[in-house]
């Protein structure tokens, strides 16, 4: 089987971001960037399926600027075989990303496409579902377990009421949740080896997809500040605070 994994380079999830005072966006200059955490789980899942003998080729693809090469290298060091950078400096909407990925799916024809469930910059949680819709493949989102069974997959999904396991036929699209696995840290020899693995750079314009944004972002603003915290001195004070809040609720 062939597995395609889509990965995004985002502001590192430990960075506390700063909104630009002029409302034009979030400051990304000089900020640490890394692979979106959910994408790491997707890459790890692909490598584990490979280790279990279910995949003979793992291809990773990222849509983004030249610098996104570094997250592709990370994925290659984790065990993927080949990388594709769909290069663009534009900030694309999720629909445009999904359309570009659909072109890659048409070229590569993978049996499984793995994505993260959400990118922690825009927090969209769109692209996997959109890709499934555009390619007509079944989707299993928010996966916490993936099993290859016969000609299909059994995927356990994290949902609002707990978990559910569904069976879907291949080829299919799966998006990874955080409890799917523990992503490995690539050992140094793997990092060195990654540099010699094939990495194709292809301009986004090559795919003749309309990349123009559909939505207009008027402004980006910071959320309302909470007032600074107060401490109470004893359990009775705390109980009195809670009792006060509760009685106000009942008065409503």
């Amino acid at each position: 089987m062939k597995i395609l994994v889509a990965i995004k380079r985002v502001v590192d999830h430990n960075v506390r971001i700063r909104v630009r005072p002029d409302g034009t966006g979030v400051e990304t200059q000089g900020v640490r960037m890394s692979m979106n955490p959910f994408c790491k789980h997707a890459v790890e899942a692909a490598v584990q399926l490979g280790d279990a003998g279910h995949a003979d080729e793992i291809v990773v693809v990222s849509v983004g600027p030249k610098a996104a090469n570094d997250v592709i290298l990370t994925a290659l060091a984790m065990g993927a075989h080949r990388g594709i950078l769909v290069e663009t400096d534009a900030e694309l909407e999720t629909l445009a990303v999904a359309k570009l990925l659909a072109k890659i799916v048409a070229e590569e024809n993978p049996d499984i496409v793995l994505l993260g469930k959400q990118a922690v910059d825009d927090d969209s949680n769109h692209v996997g579902q959109m890709l499934a819709a555009l390619t007509g493949r079944p989707q299993a989102t928010f996966a916490s377990e993936i099993k290859v069974v016969g000609q299909g997959l059994e995927v356990t999904r994290e949902i609002d009421t707990g978990r559910e396991t569904i069976a879907i036929p291949l080829p299919a699209i799966v998006t990874a949740d955080l409890r799917l696995n523990t992503p490995r840290n690539a050992a140094l020899p793997m990092v060195m080896k990654a540099r010699s693995k094939p990495l194709a750079v292809r301009p986004a314009a090559e795919f003749s997809v309309d990349l123009a944004p559909r939505l207009q972002v008027e402004k980006i603003s910071p959320p309302a500040e909470r007032v600074a915290g107060k401490t109470v001195g004893s359990v009775s004070d705390l109980a009195a605070f809670i009792a006060g809040e509760v009685s106000q609720m009942e008065a409503l």
Binding site: I17, R214, I220, P223
Partner: peptide
Amino acid sequence: NALQTITD
């Protein structure tokens, strides 16, 4: 940590 105001 940021809010987007969008016109659709």
